[in-house]
Simulated scan of single mutants.
Amino acid sequence: MRLRATSLLAMLVILALPAGLEARADESPAAPAPNAKPEAQEAPKPQTPEELRADLYARLAASSDADETDGLVGLLLAAYAQSGSDTGDLLLERARKAMGEKEFDAAGKILDSTVALLPDWAEGWNARATLRYLDDDFDGSMADVAETLKREPRHLGALMGMSHILEARDKKEQALKVCERALAIAPHWRSAEKTADRLKASIANDEL
């Protein structure tokens, strides 16, 4: 959710012996026929969106460098947008364009269609949560964040969005806990660290 102020290893080819032919232990392998072309290896299969996200989560957990973490988070946020459906990807692109132009009604209609068409795609719900947040519909946004996290419990955008909604409702302690959930997934993520630091300072000031 956008912040408001913002090979498979290559498979070896198994050469099958022609039917009825048995290899003998004392025989040397037959030399390849002249001009014979090597057997083609199968190309590595591309990662599914789920496999890509799992790989990025694992890399985030292992990262100890803030620059690397920020880069991995960027890749992960982009990976969320991969629905596995050309139609879903196109709808999201159009919705984001409409949101950028503050055409919230048009974006809402597109995203309503998106979640109806692809109800299991977390990013469709998260995009609508973002739209509702921008339109000051915090209740609707929080409901869509919940739907997002049902499908992608580690969705960093949704977690940070929830944190901001809670902060806007003056529920700073809860907001901090949610922010810390994001940091548990992506340690050294600068954006989340800054939010957590701000919340801690605000809570401490309230306690004075």
Rank of each mutant, 00 (worst) to 15 (best):
R2I: 10
R2G: 06
R4C: 05
S7W: 12
S7T: 13
L8K: 11
L8Y: 11
L8R: 13
L9T: 14
M11C: 13
M11L: 15
V13K: 15
I14A: 14
I14F: 10
L15Y: 11
L17T: 10
G20L: 02
L21K: 14
L21R: 13
A23S: 12
R24P: 02
D26I: 06
P29R: 15
A30F: 09
A30H: 08
A31F: 09
P34L: 05
N35Q: 11
K37E: 13
P38C: 00
E39D: 11
A40M: 08
A43R: 13
K45C: 04
Q47C: 08
T48I: 03
T48D: 07
L52P: 04
L52F: 06
R59I: 08
L60A: 01
A62W: 09
A66Q: 11
D70L: 09
V73M: 05
G74S: 14
G74F: 07
L76F: 05
L76I: 02
L77P: 02
A78W: 03
A79Y: 02
A79Q: 00
Q82P: 04
G84D: 10
D86A: 13
T87I: 11
T87F: 11
G88R: 05
L92G: 03
E93F: 12
A95C: 06
A95F: 03
K97F: 15
F104D: 11
F104P: 04
I110F: 06
L111W: 07
V115A: 00
L117R: 08
L117C: 02
L118K: 08
L118W: 04
L118P: 04
L118F: 03
E123V: 00
G124I: 00
T130I: 04
T130A: 07
L131P: 06
M142Q: 14
A143N: 09
D144S: 00
D144E: 03
L149W: 02
K150H: 04
K150A: 09
E152P: 03
E152C: 01
H155R: 00
G157I: 00
A158K: 02
L159H: 01
M160L: 15
G161D: 01
H164D: 15
E167C: 07
R169M: 04
R169T: 01
K171A: 06
K171C: 00
K172F: 07
K172M: 10
Q174E: 14
L176R: 04
L176Y: 02
V178N: 01
V178S: 03
E180C: 02
R181K: 13
A186H: 06
W189G: 05
S191K: 14
K194L: 14
K194A: 15
K194C: 04
K194E: 15
D197C: 00
K200Q: 11
A201I: 03
N205I: 12
N205G: 08
L208V: 12
